[in-house]
Design a protein around this nucleic acid. Structure first.
Lengths: 235, 235
DNA sequence: AGTCTGTATTGACCGTCAGTCAATAGCAAA
DNA sequence: TTTGCTATTGACTGACGGTCAATACAGACT
């Protein structure tokens, strides 16, 4: 017992106003911004804050102070702390999808397209490591809306992938064993995320090598899912 | 603007003491428990609470009330809400590892052992779905200690796996291309987790089938990791 | 120049919650 | 019965998320 750790998590800044200054301070000139600009500013600050610190360790007052506005105004733009968090999460997720979608041009042959998409994915991920990790870890665990955003990204990829496969010789195989193919694809996405995280922490593998591993893993996963597992050795 | 949603998340119970009752109530007999029993009770209640609700939606007062004790006592056992949460997380993680370890008897041949371990894993996972999902989603995002617990589980499996492979013909291959094999194994664990989650939500595949898929995926991953990716077609 | 008007902005305020601490009551040994 | 240990209480605090009526800024229109 008597464990010492724990304590308050947040540190307060020292008392901000010297007693003399209180007299001097003028009503503090308001800076008026266009609706969209303010919103964008707050969103950016929010993403940054939630990437650096835990959800609980970020206080609305902090963000308001960083933006140089009052807390009330922040609540005018985002009715809830959770809303601010979610808006940031959605932006991050949308960025990721937009980047990869742009790179995976439909004019490319399927496999080539897959490679281009993965290249963009890994590139984006390594340039936005903090927000990406925050996204994947899901800042507020098990919150349904948070889960929805993350699952949304995955679902988008699954769908995009199936569209991509359409017309190729794979298509028939994929349709034949639906539930298992679903599992295989979801599993592969889990593979990609886990491998990316591992790759981000120790960067001891070329990006192109990792990309090729991921492609190979996808093909293997599909083969297993479509044909069914080999099963234990028949004795 | 003027979005209506948001609001307070927690509901309060109606005023607990009728004014008459205040007079009647005796000082409420204290129930004294042995240190270990109390701790176990609170731990169990904590796990349940955090499995059902979000971290933020669980209040210490709720748990104390459910246990029939004062908040102060709860803080005697767990110095912080986060500590209670972490203790529950660790228990859940330890359970998982203990179950799978027990099932994967070293006396079995490697592949057989792998199968037994995965069977136990899937079995455990489907019987403890709520806490498992809560564990995987990481209740407090990006909190270093929470991440440490989850990563700990994965690291344990990686290590246990490498030990298992020792002495088999695989061993040499695995050592040859370390970084890529690491990535392959971590990726495969991501595969297992994602596939399990998918399997839990729609249970449209036999457990044994899934187990065999996972085994096949493992072998494929290792092959790719050890031999290196096939790479883009050499033209 | 004035003054009007819509809206971006403020700051004081509230209820709740995590966390603290000195005082107290149950139990076992003497 | 008394003593001593410790499990237990409950009142208290500071901070934080969230609310709201009042206010000051900017551009439009005399």
């Amino acid at each position: 017992m008597a464990v010492i750790r724990g304590l308050r998590r947040r540190r307060r800044a020292a008392a901000p106003v010297a007693d003399d200054a209180a007299r001097t301070r003028r009503p503090r000139r308001r800076i008026r911004l266009e609706n969209d600009q303010r919103r964008a500013q707050l969103l950016a600050l929010g993403i940054q804050a939630f990437s650096d610190r835990t959800y609980d360790d970020v206080s609305i007052d902090d963000i308001a102070r960083a933006a140089g506005i009052s807390k009330g105004l922040l609540y005018h733009y985002f009715p809830t702390k959770r809303d601010l968090y979610l808006a940031g999460l959605r932006t991050t997720a949308d960025d990721l999808i937009a980047t990869t979608t742009a790179a995976a041009s439909p004019s490319l042959p399927p496999l080539e397209r897959m490679r281009a998409g993965l290249d963009a994915y890994l590139d984006h991920v390594s340039h936005h490591a903090r927000p990406f990790v925050a996204l994947m870890r899901g800042g507020i665990g098990s919150d349904p809306e948070v889960v929805a955003v993350i699952e949304g990204v995955r679902a988008t990829y699954v769908q995009r992938f199936l569209e991509n496969a359409e017309g190729t010789p794979l298509a028939g195989m994929l349709m034949a064993n639906r539930p298992l193919v679903r599992i295989a694809i979801r599993g592969w996405i889990g593979f990609v995320e886990a491998a990316s995280l591992e790759w981000l922490t120790r960067k001891d593998v070329e990006r192109t090598t990792l990309r090729d591993v991921l492609v190979d893993a996808l093909l293997a996963s599909l083969r297993i899912g479509a044909a069914g597992p080999s099963g234990p050795p028949r004795t």
